[in-house]
């Protein structure tokens, strides 16, 4: 209990300091801007309440995009990792390309994807999947490759086919690795959704942030960002909980 109290106290102190700084217009004076541009935590909380319908509707849109894109990347990433694992030649050829794909700036690609896929959910799913694909593929592949070669020998003398070796030994070994990748992926998926919505959209938290900040509604902007962060934290926690249930043999994690 005590270990939870200390971090909570620090967070509360930070929020308190921010509240004070905003109330006394310290920040606004320091930055030479209008005080209303620096919302206090209480203003953001007020906006969270008064805009709850708006935030919920747009949050739901973004959540659907994130879940859809994430699901796509899980299917594609795990499939791709298995293919690369089964074919060392392909792995050596494609692995550098996989890393190179990470250097493509998503912000630049997003408008092109909108041109290709239209203004619907398509380009958002594509962008999120693109962002999530890398951590999932690389972690799953590392997991598959980290299997103890003696385990593979053992199961081969027990008449396992290649498929059974994959399913009974390699996949369970890789499962905790997959979850590490997936947890990174959901966190960045939320950013992907925002980029996707910025490139062309009429709803979603990213859209709301863009619109509110253009209208200098800073409290609403921050409220939307808070909902976005909460979404990411929730999805991360959900994955961590699933991991504890289905991949409990993985390396023991230190609790955060």
């Amino acid at each position: 209990m005590k270990s939870r109290l200390a971090p909570l106290a620090i967070v509360l102190a930070l929020i308190g300091a921010w509240e004070l700084a905003a109330r006394l217009d310290v920040l606004a004076h320091g930055l030479h801007i209008e005080p209303f541009l620096v919302p206090a935590p209480s203003d953001i909380a007020a906006s969270l309440w008064s805009d709850r319908g708006l935030l919920a509707d747009n949050g739901w849109v973004t959540l659907k995009e994130v879940l859809g894109g994430f699901a796509l990347s899980v299917v594609a990433g795990v499939g791709f990792a298995i293919v690369l694992h089964l074919s060392p030649t392909l792995r050596r050829a494609v692995y550098p390309l996989l890393i190179a794909s990470q250097t493509i700036p998503i912000v630049v690609i997003a408008p092109i994807l909108v041109v290709w896929l239209g203004f619907g959910i398509g380009p958002k799913l594509a962008i999120i999947a693109l962002i999530c694909f890398f951590p999932i593929t690389v972690n799953t592949l590392d997991g598959l490759r980290s299997v103890d070669p003696d385990l593979v020998k053992m199961i081969r003398t027990l008449d396992a086919s290649r498929r059974q070796t994959l399913w009974r030994v390699e996949a369970p070994t890789a499962l905790p690795f997959f979850f590490s990748g997936a947890k990174i992926a959901v966190a960045v998926a939320v950013i992907g959704a925002v980029f996707g919505e910025w490139a062309g959209s009429s709803s979603g938290l990213g859209h709301l942030i863009q619109e509110a900040s253009a209208q200098l509604q800073t409290a609403r902007t921050f409220a939307a960002v808070a909902v976005l962060s909460a979404l990411a934290i929730l999805l991360f926690a959900l994955l961590a909980a699933i991991e504890r249930r289905v991949a409990w043999w993985g390396p023991k994690e230190t609790s955060t």
Partner: peptide, 16 residues
Amino acid sequence: LARCSYMPQRDLLLPW
């Protein structure tokens, strides 16, 4: 391979 079963140096039980 089909005629031998091999008990490795470590027990290598699958933890899952």
